[in-house]
């Protein structure tokens, strides 16, 4: 498959995520959209890892494992995402406890 297909697919997913962040008010949905963005990045990275032509990588020692670093990176993204989710959901729960809402616009004391 041409790499561009993947790029465009990833970009599209990414942008859908962005749009989701922009148009939804529920903090959890927004958070999910962010996860969507991360996943599009993951997809892109995996696609790049399998890209035939990797320009100007002079590092011969990695020659055998060209592309594997991208997949490792994806792995780390997942790790981080997991950590983030735990914190994020904790924050949302905390907020919900206080105001019984997950609407991001509900709390609006900090402005101007």
């Amino acid at each position: 498959m041409p790499i561009q297909y993947y790029i465009i697919l990833a970009a599209a997913l990414f942008c859908i995520g962005v749009v989701g962040v922009l148009i939804r008010r529920n903090a959890i949905i927004i958070f999910m959209c962010i996860e969507l963005m991360l996943n599009s990045v993951n997809l892109l990275l995996v696609a790049f890892s399998k890209m035939q032509y990797t320009p100007a990588n002079g590092n011969k020692s990695l020659a055998l494992n060209i592309g594997s670093d991208a997949q490792i990176f994806v792995f780390f993204i997942m790790v981080v995402a997991a950590a983030e989710v735990s914190v994020g959901l904790a924050i949302i729960v905390m907020m919900y406890r206080n105001v019984h809402s997950t609407d991001v616009n509900f709390l609006n004391r900090l402005k101007n």
Binding site: Q4, K50, M51, Y53, Q71
Partner: peptide
């Protein structure tokens, strides 16, 4: 990258 291809179904780095 316009000529680049993503290699499908092969390679064992994954």
């Amino acid at each position: 990258i316009s000529k680049s291809q993503a290699v499908m179904n092969e390679g064992d780095i994954g």
